[in-house]
Amino acid sequence: MMEFLLAPWPWWFSGILVGLTVPLLFILSGKAFGISTSLQQAGAMCAPGCKASYLRDHDRREHAWTLVFVLGIGLGGYVAAHWLSATPVEFLPESYLNVAGLVKLLVGGFLIGFGARYAGGCTSGHSITGIANLSWPSLVATIAFFAGGLGVTWGLGTWLFS
C-alpha cells in the first residue's frame, strides 16, 4: 500500500481522484472547481481601486475561497513532494534551469494568465468541470487549448525545446 502511494500514481487512480475533486468541492463548499479565477482574485485584491472594471467590479468576497483553494494546492504540492514521494520529482527539465528557461516560463506564464482569463477558465474550470456538466462552450475551449498547445509544440518545438 505505501509502496503504491509513494510511487507515481497510475493514470486510472489519478484520473478518478481528479474527477472526484469536482463533487468534493461542490458538496463540501458549494463551489464549482476552477483555478484561474484565483489570478483575477489576486489582481482585484492587489489593485482594489483599479481603473479596469474587470478588477474593480470583481466580487472579492464571493471569490475569496479561490485563494484559500490555491494555498491548499501549494500545501498539497509540498506534502506530495516531501512526504509522499520515494524519489524526487523532476518538475522542470534541466534545459529550463537557466536564464533562457526563466524567460520561457515568464512568457509562457503570461500566455497562461492572459489566455485563461480571456477564455474564462482553464483546464480545471473548462476541461474538467465544464465538460463534465455537458457545457459545449467548455468543449470548444478545450479544443482551443489543444490547438494552441499542439501548434506551439509541433510548430515551434525545435526552436523552443532543443
Binding site: 489566455g115 482551443a144 490547438a147 494552441g148
Partner: peptide, 10 residues
Amino acid sequence: GGILFGAGWA
C-alpha cells in the same frame, strides 16, 4: 484566449 492558454501550457 484558449489557443493562447494552450500555447502557454505547452
